[in-house]
Design a protein around this nucleic acid. Sequence first.
DNA 1: CTTCTTGGTAGCATGTTGCAACCGTCGTGA
DNA 2: TCACGACGGTTGCAACATGCTACCAAGAAG
Lengths: 150, 150
Amino acid sequence: MVTRTRFDDSECPVARSVDAIGDWWSLLIVRDAFDGSRRFGEFQRSLGVAKNILAARLRTLVAGGVLESVPASDGSAYREYVLTPKGKALFPVIVALRQWGEQNFFAPGEPHSQLVDRQKGHRLRALEVLSEDGRRLNPDDTTVHKISTQ
Amino acid sequence: MVTRTRFDDSECPVARSVDAIGDWWSLLIVRDAFDGSRRFGEFQRSLGVAKNILAARLRTLVAGGVLESVPASDGSAYREYVLTPKGKALFPVIVALRQWGEQNFFAPGEPHSQLVDRQKGHRLRALEVLSEDGRRLNPDDTTVHKISTQ
DNA sequence: CTTCTTGGTAGCATGTTGCAACCGTCGTGA
DNA sequence: TCACGACGGTTGCAACATGCTACCAAGAAG
């Protein structure tokens, strides 16, 4: 984990997000949560991560309000980890990473898992960064105002 | 750093992306690159990261094709690190993280750096995940097909 | 020529990760 | 109701990665 107090640039929302998620394992946990995983064992089998690491990450994610620990939905006495609204708001982040991976790390036609529209079974549209009035923006079309009072 | 060979679920584009970026420092380096940083010293001052770590991350990012090491644009003999097209394609990822951070980790009115449309100076529109036919999709409206031949 | 800046590397203390072993609770079949 | 396996962890330890400081070589400035 990145040492937390090193971020003196913490007025940057990207840095705070990165800090809140914690590490890459946590992001893959969130991905699996979007994918339907709920139980400790499900995450563990899916990720192959050591149990102590997984336990620590789940604690961090719960403490950070990304996941919530709730009684199991199947009536058993075990607990489940589900996304909070804040966690669900990470959806565009996961989708963006997925699309970047698809476009850059797979040969044409190479099989990979795919996120589809449940209703029609189609692929998703590529994410677009838009201006307030709807123009499509490239990185060069934007600039960062260092500090702003919202 | 997450042990690389642990990803037996590497058919997932999210996992490959995560693996390619390497760690959180690398993502903040990329953020700074979008923000205009080009020189070793610029990244170092901005991030406050140890120089050996920064040097290692820059090597990794160059090796991964996210950054490119080019002769300095100001005519000096030093090198600069600039985003490749693949690196620029991370733009939606950074924007998504930024928007998530803005919405979840700042009190209303709390000052923070802000990404704006260079032409008009306006804030950006929130990213939306859309279906192929343009419907707005929430996490629950999508599902993952485990393997697909594109 | 000297001094500062840039862009690193080397060594070492510390923190984090991964692995394996262990353990209490829960569920379930007999 | 009892045994046995699955679930959901915790603990201890070895290995590795990180961060800090010191150091250094080459380039720029004067």
